[in-house]
Structures are given as C-alpha cells and as structure tokens.
Design a binder for these strands. Structure first.
Length: 163
DNA sequence: GCCAACGTTGGC
DNA sequence: GCCAACGTTGGC
C-alpha cells in the first residue's frame, strides 16, 4: 500500500468532474513524463491512496482523496492523432505511456491551500512543496498522507463550528 | 503576464 | 556525452 499525489488543472479536470464520472471512476490519461510514467507502471497498485491536487487554482490546493482502481496499463490516447497528448512515437505494439484508473474517495470540506501546507512542519520535504516541483505524479510518504488527512479533518470540523 | 525551474531535443 | 536552445509547468 503506497500513497500518491496527482496534479490536475481544475479548468481541465477537477475533482468535481471526477465526482460526476460513472462510479466516480476515470482513467488518468495524458501523463507524458517518464518519471511519472514509471511510478504508474512500476509501483502503483490497486487500493493505493491518492491525494488529489488542483494546480493553477487560487489557491493551489489538495482538494480530496481517491484510490487507485486499476494498475498501470497503456494510455491509448497517445495513439490518437487528434488527441492533445498524441505521441507519434507510441504504437499499439509498444506503447510508451501508461495510465491508471482512479476512484474518488472524498472531497475535502475545505481545500488545503499550498500556503497553509507550507506552514506544517510534518510536511517538510514533501515533493509538492519543493520549489520548482513539476512532477504531476508524486509519491507521498505514509506520515505525510496521515498528516494531510488529519489537516483535512481539522479544517472540516472548524467549518462546522463556525456555522 | 512574468519568470524560475525543469525536461527534452538536437547539433556538435 | 555535453550543453544551448527551446517548450512547458505552475506559483505568484
């Protein structure tokens, strides 16, 4: 059982879009970075935990959790010329790119903004918080995962109290 | 819109 | 194998 963080631009595909998918499940296509591909191909297992992150949002934030619903398999969108992420080097016989399926777990009552995450000592060293970090599929340690979930719980109860 | 950080490409 | 040029990501 491992833990991951997946980045998405909410304008492109937000966690709310994921909630609208049949069975709240979708395939995670379009990853065109070798390091990220390798994580999906070699390490992701069904049941692994996923932090869902909105990049380019205001503020950028972790907005919920998901689970890996299907382990790495060929990303067919790389083969379709009309697709954004088309890669002519990828073929059906030797696909270069991988995707996984994810299933929505929970949407946080309050998004956990980057600025607030940076203040949390337990998250020091988290890849997401490293300056210049661009990796769209990142491993997350178990302590980091637990810290984030705890923060989400706290934020949720704070919102309830305020009402 | 700016720009730093990063990955990839291609000439040599 | 080096490295400059380029394109992209993503916070601000």
């Amino acid at each position: 059982m491992r833990y991951w963080l997946l980045k998405s631009e909410p304008d492109c595909f937000s966690i709310h879009d994921l909630a609208k998918c049949p069975k709240k499940t979708t395939y995670w296509d379009g990853v065109r970075n070798y390091q990220a591909r390798n994580f999906m191909r070699d390490q992701m297992q069904v049941g692994d935990g996923v932090l869902f992150y909105h990049s380019g949002a205001n503020p950028p934030a972790i907005v919920g959790t998901a689970k890996i619903a299907k382990a790495g398999y060929a990303d067919h969108t790389a083969l379709i010329a009309s697709e954004n992420h088309y890669d002519p080097k990828s073929t059906p016989e030797e696909p270069i790119w991988m995707m996984v399926d994810i299933k929505l777990d929970q949407i946080f009552a309050e998004p956990l903004g980057l600025d607030s995450l940076r203040k949390v000592a337990a998250l020091d060293g988290m890849e997401l918080l490293r300056k210049g970090s661009r990796l769209s599929v990142q491993p997350v340690t178990k302590p980091q995962w637990e810290t984030v979930l705890k923060l989400a719980g706290k934020a949720a109860s704070a919102v309830k109290k305020a009402k």
